[in-house]
Design a protein around this nucleic acid. Structure first.
Length: 442
RNA sequence: GCCCCGGUAGUGUAGCGGCCUAUCAUCCGAGCCUGUCGAGCUCGGGACUCGGGUCCGAAUCCCGACCGGGGCGCCA
């Protein structure tokens, strides 16, 4: 038996390996058998190594290689030979192969087939879908984007926390909560860490963030909704206004996008994405001005009404034209739109307005937040206005009675952010195993 | 919650009352080929979601079920 030395990744093989014996492992992506010579494209996490078998050198090995099923997992020991014809500049002349796992046929999804596959088919066979380099690239970019987010928050003295995902009450109305059984009690999956991160503002851990799943039982079947998404939640205390909160959101996005330019350059190139990183500060557009901008563009929306999906998209186009901005804040949302957000602070001088903002990226809301109401009496009043059962929120309210600093924060939809960075047609492309109204498997 | 649309080989599609023993590509199999990398060439294989109905005749029309796609509202 031959000695199988340390297995090299394709990207690790360099000119210094030429003439030497190495072991490579991976999936048989394709076999091009020309009769007397055969080329096996062996794919690993980094790329593809060409294994070139010559019939007259070793007929048995040649036959074995050509009988392999695509996508079988193979270990090859052989000599690295410099080659002008091979794409990588070298190829491996096999001396021995070992089939670690033979793939069956027919396969549920082609990895290098010259035909497309529906997203549904791809998601049903996600492990095979991910064998495509461009699909994996999305997830490396996602990871790098989160790295940039964490870099910034760490540098700004935020600490990462984890709060319960099994909760007794929701932050907002009950319609979007997933009920679950919790021993002998009924509970819900958390739709947001809102109540907990506010609770922490009274603790001394006064700058926190969490990157965790959030669950929404919304019957929304669109390319930008999923039932389980990753929410970046940030909360900070001792703020003066919502502007302090916006500055953090802006810092996060800027840090993240810049990090991508270096850390994810190869993957962005692979996807053909020419990432544009806008210079902060991002434009601040007051809600009322946004309504007027849309009106001047021929879209009539009453002051106090929601922009709607169409309005949001149109505003994205308008802001691009006027400011050349991909990212912009919509600020000072009217109380009429935030009434259900009982914890939103309303302006003392004008209770019909709040400091709440959205951060939109290419006509799509990715962040929403603002300054919270930290005064117990006012908060209770706003909760009553929403018909909430104060008893159920006892743990939350208590924190406001024994020293709660002014604070604010936001929720940031990671998947929507990645979707917009890469201009992906469907948010499901940004989740390994998405959960939506109908999908529970895999 | 509301509204539109679709389910044909493993994958992606054409066909939309008889011309269908169902098109094409991909894929799989057999063969030829010593420089392929969207390899090429020859031959072969493989499908109308299910259940009712209309009709002389249904992949095609109608109803239902199941599965899926998209939009709105709402939101991250």
């Amino acid at each position: 038996m031959p000695v199988w030395q340390h297995i090299l990744y394709s990207a690790e093989i360099t000119a210094e390996h030429y003439g030497r014996t190495v072991s490579v492992g991976g999936w048989v992506q394709d076999i091009r058998n020309l009769g007397g010579i055969s080329f096996v494209q062996l794919r690993d996490r980094d790329g593809v190594v060409q294994v070139t078998a010559v019939k007259k050198r070793n007929p048995e090995l040649f036959a074995e290689i050509n009988s392999l099923q695509r996508e079988s997992v193979l270990l090859v020991r052989g000599t690295v030979k410099e080659s002008k014809e091979a794409r990588a500049g070298f190829e491996v002349l096999p001396e021995d192969v070992r089939v670690l796992s033979a793939a069956e046929s027919p396969q549920p999804l082609g990895v290098v087939d010259k035909v497309g596959a529906d997203l549904d088919t791809r998601l049903n066979n996600r492990f095979m879908d991910l064998r495509k380099a461009d699909i994996r690239a999305v997830f490396r970019i996602r990871a790098a984007a989160l790295q940039g987010v964490r870099d910034y928050l760490l540098s700004e003295s935020f600490i990462e926390v984890s709060t319960p995902k099994i909760v007794a009450a929701g932050a907002e109305g009950g319609a979007t909560l997933f009920p679950i059984k919790y021993f002998d009690k009924s509970a819900y999956l958390a739709q947001s860490p809102q109540l907990y991160k506010q609770n922490l503002m009274a603790s001394g851990l006064d700058r926190v963030y969490e990157i965790a799943p959030a669950y929404r039982a919304e019957a929304s079947d669109t390319v930008r909704h999923i039932a389980e998404f990753t929410s970046l939640d940030v909360e900070l205390a001792f703020i003066e206004s919502s502007e302090d909160v916006m500055a953090v959101a802006e810092g996060i996005v800027d840090s993240s996008l810049r990090h991508l330019l270096t850390a994810a350059k190869a993957d962005l190139d692979l996807l053909g994405v020419d990432l544009s990183v806008p210079e902060p500060p991002y434009p601040r557009i007051r809600y009322d001005d946004a309504i007027d901008l849309l009106a001047s563009d021929g879209m009539k929306i009453a002051h106090g009404d929601d922009l709607g999906t169409e309005g949001e998209k149109r505003l994205g186009d308008i802001v691009m034209e006027k400011h050349g901005a991909l990212l912009y804040f919509i600020t000072e949302f009217p109380t009429s739109l935030k009434r259900g957000t009982f914890y939103a602070k309303r302006y003392d001088e004008d209770p019909e307005r709040t400091g709440y903002f959205d951060l939109d990226y290419k006509g799509q809301e990715i962040v929403s937040g603002g300054q919270r109401e930290h005064r117990y009496d006012v908060l209770v009043e706003q909760m009553r206005e929403n018909g909430l059962d104060l008893e159920a929120f006892d743990f939350y309210l208590k924190a406001f009675r024994y020293g709660m600093p002014p604070h604010g924060g936001f929720g940031f939809g990671i998947e929507r952010y990645v979707q917009k960075i890469l201009d992906l047609p469907n948010i499901r492309e940004t989740v390994l195993y998405p959960r939506d109204r109908v999908r529970l498997v895999p």
